[in-house]
């Protein structure tokens, strides 16, 4: 907006650049630091001598003969079976995303196209549900789940995450569907489609951007969850986040912290990739909710 006319004075330009650089350091440095440190031994990453050691890896070289070591990763992935948690996370997040989208597109479409009052009340209820702290819901699940003997399974967690995800998915898809002109499905119905055919053949092909964006957020919710997966999964079925937290439980053991650091970095990588490829969708998703919400 100010590119052509309002030329910034030099001091303002410098201040802005300085501020942006500062923010970038704040935002990104913790990640870079942890990634770098994950290839060191504990004595370097948590150095009593000085943080410079973490950069050059003095103790790492002493202990392993090279300034970089994959010991943390080996320990986490192989010794402590982190790979199993990765597989579980994969199963959980993919299932949650897929099921959420199927239920959410159906429901969101209905909500966007129904002018009745009850549609509004469902949206309001969803808004209230979305605000519920997950851990309080978990405290409602545990006892019934123990009684029904369905505690600990991946499937249970998947269904629970899908349900917890629904309010948000409904809202987001509802607002995406609203942006698709009603004329489209109405002309399909006049052309000879049932409501469901119009939805499947005409509306969904146009909805892909919205579905992808919503899918990303469902994925993030399932991936980032700690409350549900840590409380509802048995030891064997643990996903990455509760697994990492269980590494911390046995922190006294030498080197275990580095397992956690390596696992943390491993778990961050998919998120990096996600933002790298889907930055635009994430931004549009956040704003879609804001502008219309």
């Amino acid at each position: 907006m100010s590119a052509s006319v309002g030329k910034q004075p030099l001091y303002l330009k410098a201040a802005i650049s300085g501020f942006v650089i500062l923010w970038l350091i704040v935002a990104a440095f913790p990640f870079l630091w942890t990634v770098w440190g994950s290839f060191k031994v504990e004595a370097d990453f948590f150095s009593r001598v000085g943080w410079w050691n973490a950069i050059v890896g003095t103790r790492t070289e002493l202990q392993t003969g090279s300034p970089f070591t994959g010991d943390g990763y080996y320990g986490a992935w192989v010794t402590r079976d982190f790979w199993r948690a990765v597989v579980n996370t994969g199963i959980v997040t993919i299932s949650v995303t897929a099921i959420s989208l199927v239920l959410g597109t159906l429901g969101g479409y209905a909500l966007a196209r129904s002018g009745h009052k009850y549609a509004f009340w469902i949206l309001i209820a969803a808004l209230v549900f979305r605000a519920m702290p997950h851990i309080t819901l978990v405290s409602g699940y545990l006892l019934p789940f123990f009684e029904l003997n369905i505690w600990g399974h991946l499937a249970t967690s998947i269904i629970v995450l899908v349900a917890i995800n629904q309010p948000f998915t409904l809202w987001m898809l509802h607002s995406f569907f609203l942006s698709i002109p009603k004329d489209l499905d109405e002309s399909a119905m006049v052309d000879g489609c049932t409501r469901f055919q119009a939805f499947r053949l005409v509306v969904i092909p146009v909805m892909w951007p919205g579905v992808i964006t919503t899918g990303l957020f469902s994925f993030l919710l399932a991936y980032n969850d700690f409350a549900v997966t840590s409380m509802l999964l048995s030891q064997d079925n643990q996903t990455m986040v509760p697994k990492i937290s269980s590494f911390l439980g046995s922190i006294q053991e030498q080197g275990n912290v580095m397992y956690a650091v390596a696992a943390v970095v491993s778990a961050t990588v998919p998120l990096f990739i996600l933002v790298l490829f889907f930055q635009r969708q994430i931004v549009s998703g956040l704003t879609a909710g804001a502008v219309k919400g």
């Binding site: 970038l24 990104a28 990492i244």
Partner: peptide, 17 residues
Amino acid sequence: FFSLLPMIITPLIGSLI
């Protein structure tokens, strides 16, 4: 891109870092 990272990071992982 870099600005988004602190937001999308798993809360537990972000706080550990």
